[in-house]
Design a protein around this nucleic acid. Structure first.
Lengths: 335, 335
DNA sequence: AACGTTGCCTACAACGTTGTAGAAACGAGG
DNA sequence: CCTCGTTTCTACAACGTTGTAGGCAACGTT
C-alpha cells in the first residue's frame, strides 16, 4: 500500500500542508509537531509522489543523459562520471540509448524531454542544427561537436589539437607512412572530420604527404569496423608503419587484424587510439591513446545544466572546453 | 513555450477532453473533428505532460533497469537488450547505476521506485532478501541469483551447469591443474558461489582434486582484479595449466598478466571466461567463454514485468531460466 | 409520432502535491 | 487590557491529465 500526505496527516493529527512543510524542511514548525509528523512518516514508510510534486513544482529532480550506444565503452564510462557529478546536485540520471540514428535522436531530443525530466545532456551523432531548432523548453547541454553553432550549451574537447598531438607522436617515432582509421562522411561525424583535420595538420607540419590511400573510412566505430578497415589497408598494399584510429574500439579491432596478419605492434606498425577506455590499459599490447578528461567533461556538463536550470534560460549558449592528455603505452613503445 | 490540452482545445474549438480522446486514440471522434484537433496539435507542437498523465493514470510508461556498474561491458550490453525489449511494450527505460553497494542498492530499490516508474528490473550484487521484504508497491524483476527465495520474479541462468560445462571443456583439453579466478565471500556474490560449485563439480567428475591454492578470490570482477589474481597464482608457484575466470573482464585481465609473465595462451595456460562480451571476440587471443543468451534474459525480464503490471500483483513469484552456450575461441584452441 | 440506440461530444471531479492567503495562538510592549 | 508582530498552522486552489456521467443529435424501429 502506498501512502499519501493525507494518510500521514491523519495519523499525526495535523493538516496535509503541515506534513508537506515537514517533508520540505520548512522552518516554522513546532518541534513536537515535527516529531509527531516524522514519526507518522516513519511508521507509514511514506515517500512523496514525484509525479505530483513535479506537476506542482515543475521540477522532477531527474535529468537524462542520451548517448548513442552504451556498449561503446567510452559512453559507458562517461555515464558513470555523469551519474557521479549529478549526484552532487541531488539529481537522478536517466540514461537513454538513442542508437545514433538521426530520427531516433530527434525522438529522444523532443520526446524524452516531455515534462519528465528537468534537463538533458546529449551526445548526438547525427542530429543537425535544424533538428534542435524546433526544441523549446527543456534545457539541454550537448557533448561533442556535431551540431555546429547550435543554440545549446556545449562541452567540447579540442579534437583537432589532440589528433595533431597524437599523430605528431607517431611522427616522432620515425614513422612515415601513417594511416588513419575512422573517417566518415562529413554529415555523419563531426568528430571524425576534426580528428582527420588534426591528423592532416600533423603530417603537413612534419613535411609528410597526405595520402588518400592511407585514410580508411569506418561506418561505425566498433571493434569490427576497426578490424575490417585495418584488413583493407593491409591488403591494399599501402603498407603503413603506423595507424591513428579515431577511437579506442577501432584501435582494438585494428590490433586484432594486425595480429592475424602476423605483424608486430609496435615494431612493424605503431597503433594509437582516442578515448582512453579501460580496455586499452589491458589489451595486448596496451594502447597509446588520447585521454580526454571524462570526469571534467561530465562535471562541466552538469554545471552548465544547473546554471541553465537555475538561471536565465534565454542567456546566450556557452561552450566550455575540457582538457585531455596523451597516454603513451606499449602500442607505440618498445618495452 | 509549452502547450497544454487546453491550448490545443481552444485552437481547435473543442473541449479539453476531446483533445485527450484524440491523443489517446479513442474511436468515437468524427473524422473532421479529429483532423482539426490533429492540426492544432501539430501547429502547437503539443506533447502530453507525462507527470500529469501518471498522476491521473498511475502509469508512467517508464521502467528502470538498475545495474551495479555500466562500465562492466556485460551490463552495458544487457542494457541495450533491455532497451530493445522494452520498446516492444512502448516503455522507456531509465538506467540506474547503483555502484553495487548494499546501501546504495537499497536506496535504489526503495527510492527510485517512488511513483516515478512503473516497474524495475534489478540486477543486485549485495542486496539481501530482508532488504527486499520491506518493499511494497512497484513490481520488480530480479536478474541473477543473489537473493535466494526472494519474493520477486526472477530471470536466471544455470550458473552451476554452465560453469561445469566450461570447466569440463578445459579438462577435455587434457589440462589437470585448472585454476579458478573470481571467488568471493559467500555473502557477496551468489554468482561466484554457483560458478565455483560448477567448477568443483567438473573437477570431481573428472577425478581431479579440488585444490584451495588454485582458487583465487577477486574483490570485484574488473580487469585489474583478474590481472592481480593471475599474478598471485603465478607467483604462488601453483603453476596452473588452465584458468576459469568467473567473468570475461577478469579473463581479459588474466590474459594480460599471463602475457606479461611470458606465458603463451593457450599453449602454456588455457583461459576461459563467462559472459561473452564483445571484447572477447577481438582480444589477443580471442576468448573462449560461456555465452548467456542476453537477448533472451532481457526479453524474459521485460515480459515478467509486463505480466506483473497487467496481471495479478499478488500472484506467486515466478522464476524463468534463460539458455546459454559455450563459445570456444583461441584461448582454448591452438590455431 | 414515440421510442430506444448509437455516435459524438462536454462538464466535472479527481490524482497528490505545494504556493498563497490568512486564521489562530502567543508574547511583548504600551 | 489592548494592540501589534511573530510563530504556527490550516483551507483552498492550482498544476495537466483522464475517467465518469451525462447531454444532444441523428438514426432506425415500432
Amino acid at each position: 500500500m502506498r501512502h499519501r500526505l493525507k494518510d500521514v496527516a491523519e495519523r499525526a493529527g495535523v493538516s496535509v500542508k503541515t506534513v508537506s512543510n515537514v517533508v520540505n524542511g520548512y522552518v516554522h514548525v513546532r518541534p513536537d509537531t515535527r516529531a509527531r509528523v516524522e514519526e507518522a512518516i516513519a511508521e507509514l514508510n511514506y515517500r512523496p509522489n514525484l509525479s505530483a510534486r513535479h506537476l506542482r513544482k515543475g521540477r522532477t529532480g531527474v535529468i537524462a543523459l542520451a548517448v548513442p550506444e552504451l556498449d561503446i565503452p567510452y559512453f559507458a564510462e562517461l555515464a558513470r562520471y555523469v551519474v557521479t557529478a549529478a549526484a552532487d546536485f541531488g539529481w537522478t540520471v536517466l540514461i537513454d540509448q538513442t542508437g545514433g540514428g538521426r530520427e531516433q535522436e530527434r525522438v529522444v531530443a523532443s520526446g524524452i524531454t516531455d515534462h519528465l525530466i528537468d534537463g538533458l545532456i546529449f551526445s548526438p551523432l547525427a542530429l543537425t542544427a535544424e533538428d534542435l531548432a524546433g526544441l523549446d523548453g527543456t534545457p539541454m547541454v550537448l557533448l561533442g561537436e556535431r551540431v555546429d553553432h547550435g543554440p545549446a550549451d556545449r562541452v567540447v574537447i579540442d579534437n583537432v589539437g589532440a589528433a595533431r598531438e597524437i599523430t605528431a607522436h607517431l611522427v616522432g617515432l620515425g614513422r612515415r607512412r601513417i594511416a588513419a582509421i575512422g573517417s566518415q562522411r562529413t554529415d555523419e561525424g563531426a568528430s571524425a572530420r576534426l580528428r582527420l583535420a588534426g591528423y592532416a595538420d600533423a603530417l603537413r607540419a612534419a613535411g609528410l604527404d597526405y595520402d588518400e590511400a592511407l585514410v580508411a573510412p569506418a561506418p561505425a566505430w566498433h571493434r569490427a569496423d576497426g578490424a575490417a578497415a585495418m584488413r583493407g589497408l593491409l591488403t591494399s598494399g599501402v603498407r603503413p608503419d603506423a595507424v591513428f584510429c579515431f577511437n579506442d574500439t577501432l584501435a582494438l579491432g585494428a590490433l586484432r587484424a594486425l595480429h592475424e596478419a602476423g605483424l608486430r605492434v609496435p615494431e612493424d606498425v605503431a597503433v594509437v587510439g582516442f578515448d582512453d577506455i579501460e580496455d586499452g590499459r589491458f589489451s595486448i599490447p596496451t594502447l597509446s591513446t588520447v585521454a580526454p578528461d571524462k570526469a571534467q567533461i561530465a562535471r562541466l556538463a552538469v554545471e552548465l545544466l544547473a546554471n541553465r536550470l537555475d538561471g536565465d534560460r534565454t542567456a546566450p549558449a556557452r561552450e566550455l572546453s575540457a582538457p585531455y592528455r596523451l597516454e603513451l603505452r606499449e602500442s607505440t613503445q618498445t618495452p
